[in-house]
């Protein structure tokens, strides 16, 4: 991933509407978890990060169901971090 693309992604993760997501996503990125991801996992992460805050929060807390196994896998990784 290009530096600028990563930094844009980082900005969109560390400045959320909800503190809950700031904490969770900053922990994931700045804890070095993103670097360990495969290209396909990274795409899934970007897809999640693009979501509206409550929608993402609902996925991360299991309140909403996820059909897409790629996203489900990514959610599991974030929850574990």
């Amino acid at each position: 991933m290009e530096r600028a693309d990563y930094e844009r992604l980082r900005w969109r993760c560390i400045r959320r509407a909800l503190l809950e997501l700031d904490i969770t996503l900053t922990r994931f990125l700045d804890g070095g978890e993103f670097e360990k991801l495969t290209d396909e996992e990274r795409l899934a992460f970007v897809e999640l990060a693009d979501m509206e805050d409550y929608d993402l929060w609902d996925l991360l807390t299991g309140k909403a169901e996820i059909d897409d196994p790629r996203l489900a896998h990514m959610v599991a990784l974030i929850r574990k971090s």
Partner: peptide
């Protein structure tokens, strides 16, 4: 805005 409007903190 520093973020997309509907990501402003009022959302919280």
């Amino acid at each position: 805005s520093k973020v997309f409007p509907t990501r402003s903190h009022t959302v919280a």
